[in-house]
Design a protein around this nucleic acid. Structure first.
Lengths: 159, 159
DNA sequence: GACATATATTTGCCTTGACAAATATCTTTC
DNA sequence: GAAAGATATTTGTCAAGGCAAATATATGTC
C-alpha cells in the first residue's frame, strides 16, 4: 500500500521522507536551545535561551533601548518588557532613563551581568556551538553560516 | 568605549557581532515558519506550521498512533492531543481505536485532509522552501541539508 | 493469575511570546 | 504653539508547548 501512496520519486533525489529544510531547522534549533540551556543549568546558571541572547546582545551593544534590544533578538516588545523584569530582578541588568528621550529606557548590563556573560554564559554558548559543529571542517562551518545567511536574506527580501 | 569592551578579534575570522549559529537558526526558522503560514493563509488555508507538519507526517506515515506522530514532529504528547482536537474539528483527520491495543489511537487523514495536503499545504511548503533556497545552487542546497543533519546528529549523539 | 511496571492518551497548570490597547512622550505640520 | 501623527514602554489577553498528574490498558514477573 505504501508503494501506491508514495509517488515515484526520481531516485537520484533525496528520499521522499527525508526531513525538509523547515523540519530540520526546527529540530536543530530546538536541540541547540535545549543543549545551551542544559549547559548553563549544569553550571548553576538559570537562564533561558532568550535571556542568554538578551545578555549577549546587551553586552555587544552597550547601552541600548528596549526596542533596539527587542529588534536585535527578534523578540516582541511586550515579551521584552517581561524578560527585562526578570533579568533586572536577577541583577544582571539595569534600566535607567534615557538622557534625551524620556520615553526611552537605557538598558545596560550590571557588573554581575558582565561577569555572568564572561565567565559562564558565553563559555556555555561557545562550548555547545563548537560541539554542534564538531563534525564539520572549519570551511564547512563557514559555509553553513553563509548558506543560512543567504537563505535568511532571500526570505526577507523576496517572497 | 566600544574599542575597549570589544576584545581584538582575529581579523581573519567573522566579525564579532556576526550572528552565531544559534541566532541564525532562530531567525531563519521563524522567518520560514511565518512565510509558510502566510502562504497558506493567502490560499485561504488556516493552518499553523505545527499543523502543517502534523498533516505532512500523517500523510507520509499513514495510520499512526498519537505518540508516533508526536515523536515524528517533535511535539509534546499533551500538545499533540490538543492539535489533534483541532485538526479533527477541521475535518482533516480521524481518530479511531487501534485494533490490537486499546490504549492506542489510530490516526489517519480524512479525504479532506489528503486533499488539503495535496492541493494546498504541500504546494505552499514547496513554494516557500524553494524560494528560501533560491539563492543556492542545487549542490549547495543539498550541502545545507547535509550540514544541518550532521549538526543534528552530533548534538544528539554526543554532548 | 495477581502484582508491579511500563506505555498511551488526556487534562491541568505554568511560562512564553504574539498582538492589541493604553499611556507617555517626542516630532511634524500648519 | 496647538493639533495630529509617530514612537517607546507597559499591560491585558490569548494560544501554544512543556511538564506532571490522572486514567486506562498492556506487559513482564513471581
Amino acid at each position: 500500500m505504501n508503494d501506491i501512496t508514495r509517488p515515484a520519486t526520481p531516485s537520484l533525489g533525496r528520499p521522499s521522507d527525508a526531513p525538509t529544510l523547515g523540519m530540520l531547522l526546527n529540530m536543530v534549533r530546538s536541540e541547540m536551545v535545549r543543549t545551551i540551556e542544559a549547559e548553563m543549568s549544569s553550571q548553576g546558571l538559570d537562564l533561558s535561551f532568550t535571556q542568554y541572547l538578551i545578555i549577549k546582545k546587551a553586552q555587544q551593544l552597550g547601552a541600548v533601548s528596549a526596542t533596539e534590544l527587542a529588534r536585535a533578538v527578534e523578540l516582541d516588545g511586550g515579551a521584552m518588557t517581561r524578560q527585562l523584569d526578570q533579568l533586572e530582578r536577577k541583577g544582571f541588568l539595569r534600566r535607567s532613563p534615557h538622557a534625551q528621550d524620556r520615553r526611552t529606557l537605557s538598558i545596560e548590563l550590571t557588573e554581575a551581568g558582565h561577569a555572568v556573560w564572561q565567565n559562564t554564559a558565553s563559555v556555555c554558548g561557545q562550548r555547545v556551538t563548537n560541539a554542534a559543529q564538531a563534525s564539520l571542517s572549519h570551511a564547512e562551518q563557514a559555509q553553513l553560516l553563509d548558506y543560512l545567511e543567504r537563505v535568511l536574506h532571500t526570505l526577507r527580501d523576496k517572497t
